[in-house]
Nucleic acid binder design. Sequence first.
RNA 1: GGAGCGUUCGUCUAGUGGCCUAGGACAUCACCUUUUCAGGGUGAAUAUCAAGGGUUCGAAUCCCUUACGCUUCACCA
Length: 463
Amino acid sequence: MVRTRIAPSPTGADVHVGSVATALMNYAWAKKNKGQFIIRIEDTDRTRIVEGGEVQMLKTLKKIGLAADESPEVGGPYKPYRQSERLDIYKKHAEELVKKGKAYYCVCSPERLTKMREDQQANKLVPKYDRQCFDNQEEVIKKIKEGSRFVIRLLIPEGQIKFDDVVRGEITIETKNLDDQVLLKSDGFPTYHLGVVVDDYLMKITHVIRGEEWLPSTPKHIILYTAFGWELPVFAHISLLRNPDKSKLSKRKNPVWTSYYLEQGIFPEALLNYLAQMGWSHPEGKDIFSLDEYIKVFDIKDIQKTAPVFDPVKLEWMNGVYIREMKNEKLKTKIFEFLDKKYPEDLIERTIPLIKERIKKLSDYLPLCEFFFKAPEKYEIDLSGKKDFFGIVSAELKNINNWKSDLIGESLINLAKKLEIKNSQFFADIRMVITGKKISPPLNESMEILGKEACLKRLSVIK
RNA sequence: GGAGCGUUCGUCUAGUGGCCUAGGACAUCACCUUUUCAGGGUGAAUAUCAAGGGUUCGAAUCCCUUACGCUUCACCA
């Protein structure tokens, strides 16, 4: 049985695209092995909680199509799936470790800890807790009984920790570089390290697939598993998405919230397809593949170690491919809904064949097609003084009884020839008066859709 | 600063000792298609495989050193 999870913290407004990439691998690995994919909310830092963040995250994850088998929303056999509702469990486990001599109470003040670290750094030492409280546990316990605030710290054993990472191979870390990590904070909440280990164990997580930022703290987690006497899960630390300057993908330098891309009209399928290729490639070299196909061919062993740069340009290209491959009917519905159903569906439908190859994301539609819904209010090129020209064009078009694009085109080409005007100039002016823009969908077809009357009216506006 | 991890075209990547005078995709450029823009087609340019040493008949692939980059060192996750 394979069970994977993502453990987002509601400390941001939405899901980070990097988290979606991680979620995708967790999801795919679980599904490939007929296992379960779990979402657990790690809301243990009350000072950083963003209002509405959790709701938004869950909503976005659902939109993106990575449905959880167990989560705060859908529940499950190991509920609750929100850490703030599991405080008793962590406390119990932390105290169990104290009893076993693997952890200890500490009443040091933040001020003392800060000063200690500053001194250590000034002396070029590794900043770590000096175990003052560990050496005086009886006294510390007495203080706690008198009401002192306290934390529980992990007692890091001497020696080295070795473990296998699916992505990175064998990792060795000397424990002398590790600090006696706080497990239970003075507010009664667990730190990430306690919470993640206890929950991953209790929720029977078999594969911990997470960002590489966790690699340095994995030895602490292993010490915890060992202290409890629990079997280790499989670890896979995947590379972080980067900004073009190679730093960790951040909102300062790139849009990172997943809904930003969704709101632009990037399809969830396209986003997932793109993200799938960050640090992994299809065995047959395919660029475009479905989530189902990904699940079939994906293997955590094939994940690459190098950290990829997130390239929105390639994402857009890929979304364009999805648009072009989509059935017209479906694309129409997507656009209709994207525009909040404010524009007539039947008219959108008629424009689809004209724009399908011209848009890369749904938000490209309106700038290109707004002229179908209302006459241009301004023109990108000044048309004043062309009244006579448009009068002639108008007269020509009036003669067309069967208002079809090919007949419109034929008629206009003949007129251009008669007037001895180059096609490019001739059509540019007409395009401008009809659409208001230098760039537009094919003109004749657009005019057919607009209808004879509307076109003649637009021609007559120029003074 | 310590520790850990990484380094193949601008970007995503293929590549696990001979098939690599390094392949594909995006982006770029050119040409064709054309009344704009796309799309499609054809083609081009771009990588001394971070650098230097080894091992080997043979290395992008194995080993070592250096450089650079990233992550991390909280009662944050």
